[in-house]
Nucleic acid binder design. Sequence first.
RNA 1: GCGAUCAUAGCUCAAUCGGUAGAGCACCGGACUGUGGCUCCGGGGGUUAGCGGUUCAAGCCCGCUUGAUCGCCCCA
Length: 425
Amino acid sequence: MSQKITGVKGMNDLLPGEIEIWHHVERQARETFRRFGYQEIRTPIVEDTALFVRSVGEATDMVGKEMYTFRDKGDRSLTLRPEGTAPAVRAYIEHAIAQKEPVTHWFYIGPMFRYERMKTGRYRQFWQIGAEAIGVKEPAQEVELIDLVRQFLESLPLSGVMLNLNSLGDDQCRPKYIEALVGYFRAHEAELCADCRDRLNRNPLRILDCKNERCQQLAAASPSVLDSLCDPCRAHFDEVKRQLELLEIRYVVNPRIVRGIDYYTRTAFEFVAEHPALGTASTVGGGGRYDKLVKELGGPDVPAVGFGLGLDRLVLLLKESGRSFATHPLLFVATAEEGARDHALKLVSNLRRKGIAVETDPRGGSLKSQMKRADKSAATYTLVLGGNEVQTGTAKLKPMAGGEPVTVTLDDTLADQLKKLSPDA
RNA sequence: GCGAUCAUAGCUCAAUCGGUAGAGCACCGGACUGUGGCUCCGGGGGUUAGCGGUUCAAGCCCGCUUGAUCGCCCCA
């Protein structure tokens, strides 16, 4: 047992029984993105470490202590991506997408990696559904993305998710705000927790996020970002709010949302679900505008907005609904006599080619044991193939949930007969 | 990174004072020889997470490791 190899800590296997719910969420996501005109991208799981250091920010927890970083055989420093925006922007720049189209709408679904302590809803490999809209400076862009998330959540369906909204200002007004904030906290430095005293120098915005009681009190009385927005930022924020109201999207302005990433400018938002199933991991998604990031990473000076949703957390919430997403075969084929095996083999193959979900037990065995497997498969009908059926060219379909058997003919029209019986399948 | 709790069959859990590891569910088979579920009967399953220590004797006591759960931190 000491030699037993197990999965890596914090990285989970997804097995049948659970995977169906993931498929459901991913299917609804893809369908929503289709309606909004967003196209899928797939970027590598591994990137140059510098990409995240330069975009997410050196002083963030994500970069400072949560990255899976290693050296490859060429002595390059590589990192398992902790988030999806930086890789998307890297790809956008690398493929000179700005030269080809003024507006880019992308989405992605894939695993992210952060070296963190595990708890409910937080894993070292977790999955994100994200979107990036590059090239639009207008407030309508973040409103479109927020509307997209809303419609996606409705499709699952998932309710009770609150939208928290904030504006972090831009490079005109943010420096002044941070100056005011630092000045304020400097005056109360002795009262701050040890972490926050450190944050004061490295990343003062994060103090607003601190859960320490005294820090919270101080933060509550601190200058609000919203009071120091410059006129263009204020107008932008007001317009975002106006359009959200136009679409009847409910939100709460929360000036304490700062997000754990440095690249956000102006609008920042979070989707929060207070639910016991999530424990303290109540954030199911977050995003915001990052108008300077593309240029900072060496690309053109284009504005952008994006969001990321925690697929694992959505699945946790959806599991609570108790809904079943399992799929079942329409037909199970059992054989009653050894001589019918070859006929069954061909029958099953032909039905499958015609699109019918058919299961059988390749091991054969007694009819009784095959019937048990038919029951287990949750097939709608079972067809027992034996000498009689082969001889007469007809068979009875047994409805496994009860009811009268249905007689079918064993010819090329069998698939159509089955489809007629069960149009949904 | 810090703190707390926990680890027995595939799953949920028993096992008295330290004295031969058990049940339910699940799985397989039979009762019922071409018809599942219900009932009854039987069967396979365990280095008690791993390694070491104390003891005549350890699932139980002690140490370490690994893993899980929760809180802090932070986030999806």
